[in-house]
Design a binder for these strands. Structure first.
Lengths: 331, 331
DNA sequence: TTGTAGGCGTTATCAG
DNA sequence: CTGATAACGCCTACAA
């Protein structure tokens, strides 16, 4: 039988209340009794029962990590970074693959809250709608919510976002340096960040005095086939181009293949940039120049925010991470 | 304030014990009172407090999913499948990225158990050593442990494995059909399953009456660079070959590239087979023939096992999943 | 079939 | 600074 707080109390000749005090680092304990109790705790290898604790505090040292699908490498990386950091702080992470539909998001959320999690982290801008359309944030003012790449206005909402504007600026500048001016963008999702990336592209082009026509944006499905599709449509459109920026690596790789099939050489004829710095971008040929959106930094920043929030300290509500353009052989 | 079992009791004019009984589907409740209580439960939207429950039962409806790193697509897929299935059963999944070292595995394990999880699922044969070298399985006889691709002998250990023998047989047979006989294998990890795959290769070759010399196995690091390395060493070795089976897709893709650089065409000169049916295998060129090890099926089978175990029903201790060879353009 | 009462392991309040 | 004692919400003998 595992020892309880009473066993410790008896062994140390104090009351259970005193044991509880040293357990929770309350100041009102004399150094002497504190030592005595700590010795016994160590000796009996006592660990407070988390359920009894939770029954009183209504909160457990666990957070929820919600993403639509952890198989998406970008989310897997972020979840990984978060989990590792949280574990160091003594928190566990419950994984939620919500699939992205509104009801499912909400259901997970309610279950997490019901189970007394100390916070929830939402990966991706998909969660924008869910929280936008419910009052869940204000319903649970004492639970902090953390968003990656998604900003929401609420006392208990905190965000870490990647600076997409900057990312597209980096892409466009790099291409210009390489002598390109006829640059296209392939958008592969209508999510908030997908739309933001596309408009950032236009901005970056404009800032450089280049053609920033919406015609230069092609919208396709995400993934390999979306990429081949994009190239077909680009070529059919007769729009002159020497470079393409894709909203995702896999889409870019599809594009790469189809460009080759059209007899176009990358990077000699056409330059290509991907997005996400996934493992696939390193092992296609040519290897893809791509945007690294720093999932590890995003993850640990969010956990930092979380920590300051649970400690009740003042903290930023919105942090922005600067992306990096990884130069490889496709530009 | 959330209603407690007492609120329900008062509202339904019964005792709290009766409410508890209907909550737990105990037979000893009259239909009439049951209905009455259930009506109130629904009306007040009552949800039993999980901590109070756990305080008594010492167990929560949560399982641990341990992998060395969820960023590895194969583990992400399995974890995904498990989480979705477990969620349907009312269980949450806590994600653990142990990194794979012995102490870390053990630490996670103890924390999970401490927190009263109802079971733990371990992904990959890496966990073999951890459990082999500890008595943790027998220390916690009432906690069921589930292993994917790893078999351990214990009353509370259950395994679902992929039939690697079969997989390599499929690979070799397919290559023979395509007219190959000089087949090499590239091993990229010394894990249990890595070793098993290599020896299965030898077996498959032998069964087909082909040369099954250990010389035909090349051992390299896992990943893209391991693949290029492998091809260099193969070519330097002067061993004649017309086909290579790689132990992982990314390694195979590295090999693909280097073969091309050596002026060898795939599949015309050399056939290549990968392993894991990862997304990368679909978007390299040529697209990779690869082994699909059915992570979705593995995941849901394990959850099925879990369910029958918690329900106390008799169940298999070891299930084997048949892999499938996905034919694409590299063979 | 139903109710009473005690216990699960902590924390918090209130005296002392 | 320390010790009783009452919650916290549910489950389960034991009684009725």
């Amino acid at each position: 039988m595992k020892p309880s707080i009473y066993d410790i109390a008896r062994e140390a000749n104090v009351s259970s209340a005193t044991v509880s005090r040293v357990l929770n680092n309350k100041p009102s304990v004399s150094a002497h009794t504190r030592n005595k109790v700590e010795e016994v705790i160590k000796r009996l290898n006592f660990q407070p029962n988390p359920f009894a604790r939770a029954l009183v505090s209504k909160r457990i040292p666990t957070v929820g990590i919600m993403s639509i699908d952890v198989r998406i490498p970008h989310y897997a990386s972020t979840a990984f970074a978060m989990e590792r950091e949280l574990f160091k702080l003594g928190y566990n992470s419950v994984l939620c693959n919500t699939g992205g539909d509104y009801d499912s998001n909400l259901k997970y959320l309610h279950i997490l809250i019901e189970k007394g999690i100390s916070g929830v982290m939402c990966l991706g801008s998909v969660f924008r709608d869910t929280f936008w359309n419910t009052s869940i944030l204000s319903e649970f003012p004492d639970i902090p919510f953390f968003f990656s790449n998604c900003v929401l206005q609420s006392d208990n909402a905190y965000s870490v976002i990647i600076d997409e504007r900057k990312a597209l600026k980096l892409c466009v500048s790099h291409l210009i340096e390489k002598g390109h001016s006829q640059i296209l963008y392939v958008k592969d999702t209508e999510s908030y960040s997908g739309i933001l990336k596309a408009s950032s592209f236009l901005h970056a082009m404009e800032a450089k005095g280049l053609c920033h026509d919406k015609e230069n944006i092609f919208t396709v499905n995400r993934g390999f086939d979306g990429g081949t599709d994009a190239v077909d449509r680009i070529i059919n459109s007769k729009i002159p181009f020497t470079a393409i920026i894709f909203g995702d690596d896999i889409t870019a790789i599809g594009g790469l293949k189809r460009l080759k099939e059209h007899g176009l050489s990358v990077p000699n004829d056409i330059a290509v940039i991907g997005y996400n710095n996934s493992i696939a971008s390193t092992c296609c040929s040519p290897a893809l120049t791509t945007v690294d959106n720093k999932t590890d930094i995003m993850g640990s920043l969010i956990v930092n925010l979380f920590q300051t929030v649970v400690e009740g300290r003042q903290t930023a509500k919105l942090l922005t991470v600067t992306p990096e353009l990884i130069l490889r052989d496709s530009t």
